[in-house]
Computed example of a mutant assay.
Amino acid sequence: MDSIAYVNGSFVPLSEAKVSILDRGFLFADGIYEVSAVLDGKLVDNASHLARLERSVGEISLPLPENIDRIIEIQKELVARNKLENGLVYLEVTRGADKGRDFAFPKGVKPTLIMFTSVKDIVNAESARKGIAVITVPDIRWTRRDIKSVALLAQVLGKQAAAEAGAGEAWMIEDGKVTEGGSSSAFILTQDDVIVTRQNGSEILPGCTRKAVVKLAEERQLRVEERAFSVDEALKAKEAFITSASLFVQPVVSIDGKTVADGKPGPMATRLREIYVDFARATAT
């Protein structure tokens, strides 16, 4: 059965959802997106995602066509209409469609807002039990990675290279250090039991799941250090793992074909995943 999407004020079958070929999201990647997980029919950590949405659109002077309360209503209506129990809600806002193609911001054009859902059993993912392989690729992105832009070609190329190598993610490397994954935040656990993840800045996206996992770890008196780390340090670590809204916490068992520790999911990543799933279920709305 065709799922239901939302396009500029209307709920329509996904197969009939359309925007103009002059939409600036299509022509210039002039837009922002967010992805919120759905667990047991409820949105996970959604306030954090919508706060990041507001920040990102603010950074590119893009007005939201609906207020946040209305966006939440639309998200929940989509979940209900699609009878979605476990999966994702994708949201994108662009600067809209003008009468032609011009680089400068158009005047008097209403931004485009679209949303749709997808089914995904994040909690019971086999990759969480077995762990994933990652490969490394050069980080060739622009320098404002803290903005969740729809300009994702560099990530697409990295993740395609990972898929061709039989890996689950690509870690992007800049100046000899890991920035982040193509669609995830990167973590390691050092031999001294310190959880390390890169500090927020323009070099990486401020991950919502990353933020929650760091907070949950600190609440349990686990040692967390926010700094850059190298692939060599990751290969010498006790564990490595990634976080994102679409996978929660997943262990990394190899990097560029070399095993991390014993090549199996470690107890820290496994425990943090359990803690995050508990948090997600307890706080979902």
Rank of each mutant, 00 (worst) to 15 (best):
I173F: 02
F28C: 12
N8Q: 08
K18Q: 15
K258V: 14
Y6D: 02
S149F: 04
R281M: 13
F116L: 09
G263L: 13
G87M: 11
P63G: 09
T117A: 09
D262Y: 05
D40P: 04
T112Q: 04
P206T: 05
I74K: 13
A186R: 00
N8W: 08
L14C: 07
K107Y: 08
T179Q: 12
D2S: 13
G257E: 07
Y6L: 08
E34W: 08
R281Y: 05
T94P: 07
I122K: 01
V134Q: 01
I140P: 00
N82H: 05
D232Q: 13
A234W: 00
V79T: 11
G9T: 07
I4V: 15
G25I: 10
K76E: 15
K18D: 07
A245L: 05
V156W: 01
K120T: 11
G168F: 01
L62M: 15
I275S: 03
F241M: 00
D30E: 09
V150E: 07
S202Q: 13
A212F: 09
A282V: 04
R24G: 11
V252F: 03
A80C: 08
N200E: 11
K120N: 11
G257W: 04
E219I: 12
S48M: 07
F28D: 09
S3A: 10
R223W: 05
F28H: 11
G96I: 04
N46I: 15
A245M: 05
V19E: 08
A245T: 15
E59N: 03
D23A: 10
A51N: 14
W142T: 05
A228P: 12
K211F: 12
P267A: 13
R55A: 12
A240N: 01
I60L: 09
R223M: 13
P206L: 07
A240T: 00
L272A: 02
S183N: 08
P63F: 10
R24P: 04
G58L: 06
M268I: 15
G201H: 07
L84W: 07
